[in-house]
Design a protein around this nucleic acid. Sequence first.
DNA 1: AAATAATATTGACCTACATCAACGGATTTC
DNA 2: GAAATCCGTTGATGTAGGTCAATATTATTT
Lengths: 195, 195
Amino acid sequence: MQQGNALLKTHITKRISLEDKEFEHFLSFFSTKIVKKRQYIIQPDFIPGHRSFVTKGAMRAYIIDDSGNEHNIQFAIENWWITDYNAYIYQKPATMFVMAQEDTTVLQVSYENEMKLKVLNPKFETFFRIMAERSTAYMQRRVIERLTLSAEERYEHFLDKYPSMVNRFPQYSIASYIGVTTKFLSRMRKGRLGK
Amino acid sequence: MQQGNALLKTHITKRISLEDKEFEHFLSFFSTKIVKKRQYIIQPDFIPGHRSFVTKGAMRAYIIDDSGNEHNIQFAIENWWITDYNAYIYQKPATMFVMAQEDTTVLQVSYENEMKLKVLNPKFETFFRIMAERSTAYMQRRVIERLTLSAEERYEHFLDKYPSMVNRFPQYSIASYIGVTTKFLSRMRKGRLGK
DNA sequence: AAATAATATTGACCTACATCAACGGATTTC
DNA sequence: GAAATCCGTTGATGTAGGTCAATATTATTT
């Protein structure tokens, strides 16, 4: 079996128990896509056709607001899923860019195939349900952090929680993810070094 | 059928199609609870045993941070679900208070019953999956708003989107929900009137 | 290896929003 | 219906973090 497929298998069987055959069936609804650094798989105004599981490389999803500022919404390295979530689940035009930060390989499932999978085997439905529940919980923690922590605390927390991300994404994208400007993040970093 | 049960039925059948019998089965796993104004159904350090669907009244979920400041995380009036999401799905001690803002009636499902429902009928699993997906999408929109809008824009947006909430919850809870202090919200409101 | 583009740092200044402290009105409680 | 509690407003002042503008630094392309 391919390296990347094995990652998806491990990912799924951590959440639900599957026979080898069932996983093969699941996998057959996915296709492998190679994305070069700086290429986009989702762009504003186009309906996102897929949800992508990163098996190699790094991607990020960001929006550009009315003032032209970029805000990173999501990062994804190996074993993470990425898409424009709102646009994907409601099948409406994207507002985000989803871009490869490095040469990247993803396993993609189309919206139609995902729907088929959910019907085909209740276990698959369960898998997507568990993913969605955990995503909600995750997003809620993010909202809470933003409400209760200072910029510096949010940055510390990011470093603690995603040490492997820090060196793979530009600092300005991390800054916007935690909700500060690049310049201020730069200053905070200097402050830390000074201590 | 009770008034409250009918609300739950409408809520579910908007999302999945169910025979009357199936709904009765679903409902049989719920119990009705009456909560007096200012009473709590979830408190920090206790594992939340239930997820609650409001059929009458209003509740809200909030945390108190290390500085003693209250941050409202969620509101719920008729037809909304409420719980401490992280604590409920991972069955760990709550960090939130969930309090009745008015005399309230809820339909509650216990964690164990919810698990049973998900196994009993794939349609029920689908229902919870759809709920979770939409919650994720909703929470992501909230993160994006916080990143891209000013305090005033967030308040305007809240008024637009939840006009029915505004008069049922104290202003300080709405302020903390959108991420400003009561005092600043008060000033913004004055500003609006001045225009 | 030079040229170009992308990213990060820095200093001077600014502002959206917070904090402190006091008060007034409205609800709730007994 | 008096007392207590809760809730919203207001003025004065403070600060975390933003903006503007310039310059370093680091990758990428040729």
